[in-house]
């Protein structure tokens, strides 16, 4: 009930945004960005809503959503930990960090733990190459990360200390 109301408000906000930028095909990607911001991901209903609002086929909207790695159709966990896999981080051991993190959480990159707490992502360079290897936990950038630091990062996330 409460969630429905939430969703309704979000759809209203999305409507407002579409009106602002214009319901044209050229704004599709921008509108999808906004929708993902609002809903956290792009479920089928949201994609259908966008498709109907812009008058473009659902297949095309879904084709665009699935093409770009920034868009996701699956909800993410409460906390998202992203390991930068840009070359600078890679040559400084980012893959070891990713492997260790996957082992720690018992999930693969792109997956979310069963309890919905953590999602692991890998990123293609956030441009913070000077701090390689870089891990981004809920938006906070951790630089020069070593495998040993991961426990602290996870604890920090769970306790909500930023």
């Amino acid at each position: 009930m409460c969630e429905n109301k939430f969703a309704e408000e979000k759809f209203r906000e999305l409507d407002g945004f579409i009106e602002k930028v214009g319901a044209s095909e050229g704004n599709l990607i921008e509108i999808l960005h906004k929708a993902q911001d609002l809903f956290g991901y792009l479920p089928k209903e949201v994609q259908l809503y966008v498709s109907r609002s812009l008058g473009i086929s659902a297949a095309k909207v879904n084709g665009v959503v699935t093409f770009y790695s920034y868009f996701t159709e699956i909800p993410k966990g409460k906390h998202v930990i992203s390991v930068c896999m840009g070359t600078a981080c890679f040559v400084r051991g980012a893959s070891d960090i990713l492997v260790a993190l996957e082992k720690k959480l018992g999930i693969k990159t792109g997956q979310t733990t069963k309890d919905g707490k953590f999602t692991i992502d890998s990123l293609r360079c956030v441009g913070a190459c000077g701090l390689a290897p870089v891990v981004i936990a809920d938006g906070k950038v951790h630089g020069r990360v070593e495998v040993d630091d991961l426990d602290n990062i996870l604890v920090e996330l769970e306790s909500g200390v930023r």
Partner: peptide
């Protein structure tokens, strides 16, 4: 401005 969405 136009935004990319993660495609090299």
């Amino acid at each position: 401005l136009k935004y990319g969405a993660g495609a090299f």
